[in-house]
Design a protein around this nucleic acid. Structure first.
Lengths: 360, 360
DNA sequence: CTGTTAGCGCTTTCAT
DNA sequence: ATGAAAGCGCTAACAG
């Protein structure tokens, strides 16, 4: 009588077998390889399963099959980006995608700066997870750590070049056939450059010809380079001069100052693409100070499609993040490797779409 | 190459036993009941464990012990609150607290409106989790569903009274003494009323005597009632009139309008407690329009301590959310019930503290 | 197509 | 204090 406390473990496979008058292996087959059963038997077994409310014990299954259908997600405690909305929505999307593939997400902490900890690498060995997903930030050491331990994983955000080995990998397919780990990590990322281009395309289609870009000031070269490049490329593509860009810290006030600088140029831009929604708010403030009506006299497009975008007046057009698609792509990649196949491509770039609202 | 694909399962307990020259349950004891071993043996076993890099297989352990040390967290897809920062930070805190108690968090989706799904209840039976944590919103049906299935869980946010289907059978209430589940769910919540009181206390200590309250307009009665009550109680406590309160939709512009109404009263308030940080931003805007310097001439305190609080000028004093404490309290409660003990109290109210910045 | 035989890695009796 | 036996619930091999 092990009445410690643990709840009512439902019926086991053998009870179902008895109820259906078959051997327990047949029940197992009914669940895992139904095509091997005669339709009649299958129906009888299924009926018994239904009646008894049988659910297989996943731990027992894992013990036998050596996989858990759980994947680990490394929560990033260090990255106290106010971007946390992203993490939340991404988690949501990833979770959904994982369930669609038959996986569950196991969460754990990556204590800030805790490079040495092998705890999560251990999770693979303890049989808690089959692989990992993480959101890689610039200079994130984790992808490399995972690669080194040969842990299957996919990163959201292109991981930094593995510091370990190669430098020259110009098309010589020689190391392609080597260890699978040497092929580099799997990743999915947002094509911010394409997002900026789409924003410009949208504005040009609306008749704008003087379109400025406002980036985030500290470290803009790194962080906003893709957005900037997309803006430049799109402007060139449309035969427009890409000469009106500026940078400001991502706060409402600083953004306003930056926007004022841009708007005081001659000829003044009629539209601004801001590197994030907060800077876009700064553009609103600047427009207000100049007596320009956002949407009618000055178009503003932000980045990130944050919750505030739909809560300001006028509502803000913003380049979104295809989080659902990202989640799906990540899980598809991971499921593929976990099943032993080789994914067609190591990395996936997903273009965001512009959510058009009143501001432009 | 006999292996399908699954990674290198580390050494097992029996290999450690051989290496240490003991039997395998001695190794087990070394891990689970070290006090039963002679120091010498223990050291030898530990050395072998270290050398071989042994980690116990948790699935096998679970199969035997009947608990998984995993707890499920129901992601709330429906609650598209722009409050999502809360969910993210809470998850972080909960995850940390869970790990401290030796638990891991298993995430899964609660598809919006999917009241019927028994999938997550099944998770308990499949042996995937020992219990659940969820963030309950008003009228959340999930706590009741979990109670009904006798699933151990703790909710962040006081769950609605477990009524049968609806208000119909609300009366009887004699089912209190029956099952243990009837003792009601376990919960942890933020004492927003105490938070508002603390805010007022802080303002009064700073010399303010005319302190207004600005609430969120649709559904304010429900959502902001505790904040309002705390403000009222504190005002009364200090012998001040609690007559200046107003409501506005939680956007910057509407908040500004609401604040303007409040500030046009006679005598004009010198401080405003806003029900969230967004409304506080509205107060900033109103102050700007009136030529009042926030912090010096008008004190503003928000709620939520959101990321913007520290990024605006002047930085915003805000009533925080003790997310770390909440996570710990939740896990303590859950761990207690899971270990078969009865927690001292069914519910825990945690008072938030005021993060003082430049605005007041 | 079905049933029998093993055994995944661990912990819990019960004997020494 | 340590060792031997048993079995958690399931599925991968073969046998029939």
């Amino acid at each position: 009588m092990s009445t410690t406390q643990q709840g009512p473990s439902g019926p086991t496979i053998v009870q179902v077998a008895q109820a259906a008058g078959v051997s327990r292996q047949t029940v197992s087959n009914a669940l895992n390889a139904p095509h091997r059963l005669r339709p009649g038997t299958l129906a009888r077994v299924m009926a018994a399963i239904d009646e008894l409310g049988y659910v297989p014990n996943l731990m027992a299954r894992s013990l036998r099959t050596r996989y858990t259908r759980q994947i680990g997600y490394l929560l990033d405690g260090g990255g106290r980006d106010p971007d946390s909305v992203v993490q939340d929505e991404f988690l949501q999307a990833l979770c959904e995608a994982a369930e669609a593939e038959g996986y569950l997400l196991l969460l754990f902490n990556y204590p800030a700066g805790d490079v040495e900890t092998t705890r999560w690498a251990g999770l693979l060995r303890t049989g808690s997870v089959d692989g990992f997903v993480l959101r890689a930030r610039p200079d994130d050491p984790r992808p490399d750590l995972l690669s080194r331990r040969r842990a299957p994983f996919v990163s959201f955000g292109r991981p930094p070049r593995a510091g370990g080995a190669s430098g020259a990998e110009a098309g010589s397919g020689t190391e392609e056939a080597g260890t699978d780990a040497a092929a580099g990590p799997l990743w999915v990322d947002v094509d911010l450059s394409a997002g900026a281009e789409a924003a410009v395309d949208h504005l040009v289609a609306a008749g704008h010809r003087h379109i400025a870009f406002l980036g985030r000031s500290p470290g803009s070269a790194e962080r906003d380079e893709p957005r900037l490049a997309g803006w430049r490329r799109a402007m060139r593509k449309h035969g427009l001069p890409a000469d009106a860009c500026d940078w400001a810290p991502s706060t409402c006030q600083d953004g306003a100052r930056g926007a004022l600088r841009l708007l005081s140029a001659q000829p003044a831009p009629t539209a601004v693409v801001a590197a994030d929604d907060m800077l876009a708010m700064g553009c609103y403030a600047a427009a207000g100070r100049l007596g320009l009506a956002v949407g009618r006299e000055l178009a503003v497009i932000g980045f990130g499609d944050s919750p505030i975008a739909s809560r300001v007046t006028p509502t803000l057009t913003s380049v979104g993040r295809p989080l659902a698609h990202i989640g799906e792509a990540v899980m598809r990649l991971l499921a593929t490797t976990l099943s032993g196949r080789v994914p067609e491509e190591r990395g996936v770039l997903l273009a965001p779409s512009v959510t058009v609202r009143e501001s432009g």
